[in-house]
Structure formats: structure tokens, C-alpha cells
């Protein structure tokens, strides 16, 4: 078997048109600017040594494990390039972007000068990346409503 049942990017087939829905869609409906839904980012778990094909970001979580991020459209290609021990986690992890160190400090105890890192965000396990003032947070999608509510609440406290 091929594990195709983990693939998120579908083309319409057999007369059906499956509709994708972000786990954060409802939670971020009233989000202020600066908070973005990144759930559709391609995310792959890779075991063993990881090379870095072009166009991807590699977050090494442990010596033998990494989270690889890429554009949704590239998941299939990157999966192929990364070898055998790869699991498509695009559907497993929700993602969002927030702006500002202060907000991030109200969400996590992580050392913001030492990102990317894996750690608790809003009391759920997460992986956090930083680009200047922007922070990308990836976490199990079943917590999407919870994390969304916490992020909006914390942001409102700083508004």
C-alpha cells in the first residue's frame, strides 16, 4: 500500500470535488491583521539524516528526526526527494503566524532568540520558527480551536 490516504492535495476525481477546510478557519474568522492561517503549508516528518532539497525549510527536532516545511504544491516532489522514511504530516499539523515578541511571550516559554524549536505553545506541543518579528507556529490540528482562541485572547490583551 502507498499511504496515499495521508495526502492532502487532491485533484477532483470520479466526479467528486472534495473540499479542503482549514482546522483554523473558524477560530481565526475574526482574527486581527497580523495573524495568518498557515495550515496549508506542506509538512513532512523525516526520520534519519535529512538533506535539504531546494525550496524547503528543515527544522531538526532530534538528531534523527526533522520537520520539513514546503509549499503545499511541492509536497509530492519533496516527499520523493527525501527518501523512504517520510510521513506526510500536512493534515496533522495546523499552522499560524503571529507578529510581535510580546505576543509570543504570552503564548510560550521558549527562548525566542533560539528558534526554531519545539516546545509548548498555549499548553500544546508545537514547533516554532521565527523570521524577524513574525513567528510561525505548527501544532496538532485537533487543538486548532483552543490555540486559535488563546492567540486571539492574548492578542486582544495587547491591543
Amino acid at each position: 500500500m502507498s499511504r496515499d490516504f495521508l495526502a492532502v492535495e487532491l485533484a477532483p476525481a470520479d466526479g467528486f470535488e472534495p473540499r479542503w477546510r482549514s482546522p483554523l478557519e473558524r477560530a481565526l474568522r475574526d482574527a486581527p491583521p497580523g495573524i495568518r492561517d498557515l495550515s496549508r503549508t506542506g509538512k513532512l516528518h523525516v526520520h534519519g539524516d535529512v538533506g535539504a532539497p531546494p525550496g524547503v525549510e528543515v527544522v531538526r527536532v532530534a538528531p534523527d528526526r526533522a520537520l520539513v516545511l514546503c509549499a503545499a504544491a511541492d509536497v509530492e516532489r519533496v516527499r520523493g526527494e527525501l527518501g523512504e522514511r517520510v510521513v506526510d504530516m500536512s493534515a496533522a499539523l495546523a499552522g499560524l503566524e503571529v507578529r510581535g515578541e510580546r505576543l509570543m511571550r504570552r503564548l510560550a516559554d521558549l527562548d525566542l532568540d533560539a528558534l526554531p524549536a519545539a516546545g509548548a505553545v498555549a499548553h500544546v506541543p508545537a514547533t516554532v520558527l521565527r523570521d524577524g518579528d513574525a513567528f510561525r507556529i505548527f501544532f496538532p490540528q485537533e487543538y486548532a480551536d483552543h490555540v486559535g482562541a488563546v492567540v486571539l485572547d492574548a492578542a486582544a490583551g495587547l491591543a
Binding site: 527536532v61 532530534a62 528526526r65 524549536a117 509548548a120 500544546v124 506541543p125
Partner: peptide, 8 residues
């Protein structure tokens, strides 16, 4: 076990 982090 690093439950909220690297799961190691």
C-alpha cells in the same frame, strides 16, 4: 520524556 518538545 520531552512531551511538549522533541518527544525524546
Amino acid at each position: 520524556f520531552h512531551r511538549f518538545g522533541c518527544e525524546t
